[in-house]
Design a protein around this nucleic acid. Structure first.
Lengths: 241, 241
DNA sequence: AGCTAACTGCTTGTGAGATACACAGAAGTC
DNA sequence: GACTTCTGTGTATCTCACAAGCAGTTAGCT
């Protein structure tokens, strides 16, 4: 049994009782929240050990009492940004359940667009992240799929949704406009580069597929893609059931 | 019309003719190849402006004649790593075509596992990346889907495949073992953390779903997930046709 | 009550990395 | 042959993440 990294112990409330020494001035959650606030306000690049430390009234090195590396800090940030899942599945069917699940996650991600930009180097083990995974599996609980199939299906939905949010926010379709992204220029560039003779399919898809940066393009495309995945799962269920 | 970034001009061979001054000593492609070699040998973190410069016989600052930032260098690296698509669709049906497409991309990614770790901040506009997208769309060309639907479907497949490679390499199922990743410990940690009462579904899926790190788990799971997506696309086609 | 071990946050320091700027020589143009 | 434009270079700055040792604090033991 390998011992848990400190930030996980702290997040899960697993510290041994009867500790000596001064009480910690802040909690990991507070530190994470401060980092989240900075990222929300000034972008991910503004989150440094120094800036976070200042925000909580620490010196940079003090943060290392709570977190062993910046990577771990980012894991905490994700946990704080997602928050606990709050889903009422009622007596919906599985299709409607994962839809709800996927939509809710997407909402949290949209609220903190930087969440889809950082790529954790280790699988998430923080409480909220775990809780969301649990909720996703629960959505598929009454299907005849094996737990492995459920896991795969859920992962597919999750990854797809994450990517959708990423693409949408980068193109400025949704959410607060990131000042440091060129957003609009992509379309200009692509039409400039794509020679219709060499890339006929792309040439057709480019303007048509990306052209209407309507407000609700995000929603339409979300439903389109999610539907595709759900149909795939449905086929899997049909075969298994 | 916004003007193209230099590295794209160079990659696409769009430099204006009749230039004065000395010829460039190297090409962007060479620089990219050097960076790729370093990443393959020593990991992504070993790729710095300095190390790449040394590899091509330059000083760090010289690289900025070819590439405006490290981000752009990474875009070049991806282009070099993917290489041009070399697919023979023959007279397969669409299902078999995208399968081939997805499999081929996955192979390239496996050959350079770091490709799935870096997240380009801008959509890919480099020649090979574009060519791969074109090939993906071509695979769906004779379906009754709109170009927008084709684009979405292709993107879904691509994102899923990328994630699959990422997960697999991180868990050490496939490819060269990254010395700086803890790999095995995840399973221990998760079983240590997941209280079966609070997270019943995960508790069941965890050991069962991730347990058999067999060699061919990668392939099985690849086919499973890809099949799910293809079934989704098929449903879409059925509805559209 | 006094002692001690374990813990707190702080101070100072280091090494790496990306990138700005001004320059000397090369290769075209007139 | 003079002018211009582009090449690669040397030097310097600025920001980070992170290392190591320190002084004050507190819970439990004697």
């Amino acid at each position: 049994m390998s011992t848990l990294p400190r930030y996980l112990q702290l997040l899960w409330g697993l510290e041994p009782t009867g500790r000596r020494g001064p009480k910690p001035g802040r909690s990991v959650a507070e530190i994470g929240a401060a980092a989240v606030a900075i990222a929300d306000r000034a972008g991910l690049s503004a989150v440094s050990m120094k800036s976070v430390a200042e925000a909580v009234g620490f010196t940079p090195m003090s943060l290392y009492r709570y977190v062993d590396s910046k990577d771990e800090l980012q894991a905490v940030m994700l946990d704080v940004a997602y928050g606990p899942p709050d889903l009422d599945y009622g007596n919906r069917d599985w299709r409607s359940r994962i839809s709800l699940w996927a939509t809710e996650i997407a909402e949290r991600r949209l609220a903190h667009p930087w969440t889809v930009e950082l790529t954790p180097s280790t699988p998430p083990l923080t409480p909220n992240a775990i809780a969301w995974m649990e909720a996703g599996l629960e959505a598929l609980a009454d299907t005849p799929l094996t737990s492995q199939q459920r896991l795969s299906a859920m992962l597919a939905v999750d990854v797809w949704g994450q990517n959708h949010v990423r693409q949408s926010t980068r193109m400025g379709l949704v959410g607060p406009v990131d000042p440091e992204s060129p957003q609009g220029s992509y379309l200009e560039l692509i039409t400039e580069l794509i020679d219709p003779d060499r890339f006929p399919h792309l040439a057709k898809a480019g303007p048509e597929g990306l052209g209407d940066d309507d407000e609700d393009f995000y929603v339409e495309e979300f439903e389109r893609g999610l539907g595709l995945l759900l149909d795939g799962i449905e086929a899997l269920i049909a075969r298994a059931g």
